[in-house]
Design a protein around this nucleic acid. Sequence first.
DNA 1: CTGTTAGCGCATTCAA
DNA 2: TTGAATGCGCTAACAG
Lengths: 336, 336
Amino acid sequence: MEKKPPTIKEIAKKLNISVSTVSRALHDHPSIGLRTKMQVQKLAAEMNYEPNQTAIQFKQGKTFTIGLILPNLMEEYFSLAINGVEDIAFKNNYNVLIGQSHDDLEREKKIVETMRKHRVDGLLVSISKQTDAIEHFEQLDKYSIPVVFFDRVPNVPDIHSVWCSLYYSTIDAVELLLKKGHERIAHICGPPSLNIKNERLEGYIEAHKRKKVPVNESLIVTTDLSKEGTEQAVEKLLGLKNKPTAIVAFNETVALDTIQYAKKKKLKINKDISVVSYANWPITSHLDYPPIASVEQFPYEQGVRATELLFKLLNTKSDQTIPYENVVLQSELIVH
Amino acid sequence: MEKKPPTIKEIAKKLNISVSTVSRALHDHPSIGLRTKMQVQKLAAEMNYEPNQTAIQFKQGKTFTIGLILPNLMEEYFSLAINGVEDIAFKNNYNVLIGQSHDDLEREKKIVETMRKHRVDGLLVSISKQTDAIEHFEQLDKYSIPVVFFDRVPNVPDIHSVWCSLYYSTIDAVELLLKKGHERIAHICGPPSLNIKNERLEGYIEAHKRKKVPVNESLIVTTDLSKEGTEQAVEKLLGLKNKPTAIVAFNETVALDTIQYAKKKKLKINKDISVVSYANWPITSHLDYPPIASVEQFPYEQGVRATELLFKLLNTKSDQTIPYENVVLQSELIVH
DNA sequence: CTGTTAGCGCATTCAA
DNA sequence: TTGAATGCGCTAACAG
């Protein structure tokens, strides 16, 4: 009924040769007679032989599995990144173990533990909102498990990372708005933990500088990313004597919440107020008043680059030191 | 530099006892002296001993990993289902290997192969649009890998499955529309491959029957789920002499495409035409004209139930036969 | 209560 | 070119 899968031992017995010969034949080892090799491979195929991965993993001390830790899968951004990761992993005959931190630090730590225990060969991480220290990742060094951070990268030295710079396209975005005649452009920042490198704000300021438009501090507000937080931020902006006519929102969710709230306050979107956002969700095409432009961050590409970097680390002899590598992609402004 | 993790052997040596005693002590085996047990556990803790999973997997012939094959991660529906799966798997100290078929049959087959080779203990599957035969899954029986289908379940006997019935809530939906005074209610069906059990249509018809409203065949159209396909379907409806005043759309995407197209054709949503859809995306709250009601299918719950069923199968001795189990949840109509 | 031993499937070193 | 022997870390059957 439930027949056990064939092993090299059985092949060896049927052919009256030794297991090592079978093993070598199966691996195209140079020092094997063509005849025997053919014989072995033929029989192996007939018997539907398949190497027992668990045995190999055990023997080699490797699992051919990489861990991928993400805040969540719900954000389209991360779903796309996964595809990039999977594609590269697949090419290298690796599996991907996925864990969601749900932006919870404790959960993130737990996932790291689980993955370590399961002996993943390497780790790709986009950190949670709460993650302000990375000891739980540094610890992996002791186990020789390389870590590559991507997208949401911790602000510490001596790590491998891949991320997408928002600086230039934020400049593009603000310049676009200025060119369209907007004189008071607001910016809704995210929470400090995700803003260590506040490229959005830097770009926002730089664009003003370039166009010689003074930056009005009261037009810069903050949200914790919750709907309420965003509404309060927008509230603040709309309460100003000189209301802004455009808003650069931290991300797509904030942009949508902003638009929704502005509408509730009887503002005409794209007339009284325009919105620019980050990321670039397909769903926006179904909105009556989508953001007028979005900053594309190329999640798939980031996933690919991060995974490639990880494999580079995996394929490096452990006695070599590898310089920390930090790949920075450039985002792009998409005008809708 | 890179110290190898400690093993039970080392613990044994340090304590001058045998490895089996250590093994048993670590497992709280009843026949171990309290003294030795304490000693062992203390030292193990000090040495940061951690069992080598790969060794255990090898020895036990189990990987403590289940495979989860989905059409994609982009649909919120599946992301939520994953959470249910993960939660249960986590509780059982299992890992989850995720694969996306991208609704491509060949890719689905490939994923099944990869997962089998990696010796997953069991498989959870929501089949691709293209999947019209399930030999590649039945084949797993030979390897004693149980399979539980969920949500998108193939229409064949002798499988384990968990899905959510849409029949009654479709009746609710149509009755709601009828009660609101709609006399011509259209239904946009999905492609035949996903419609083997066409519960939506059955519910649609039953509701008409109950309310003694004749079913008008020309109000029943079909889309292949592409935007174009949906537009053609809507086109057909809008070209009728007696246009419908309400549409029951196959799913959320179809609903959104329908709404978009209707707007383009200058129809006032919720006035000239109302839309009901399946699934229940959070994003709809950002739409100016969301569907007036949606059928909730409880993806998280489905994930949980499917995984629980799988563990039931995994925990059954292989010499027992288990009757095929088919869990049917009931969807619910959410009126917005 | 504890120790001895065998073996899971494979790659690999050493010997022939 | 091939075979014999070893060991990866752990569990469990068997023996004391």
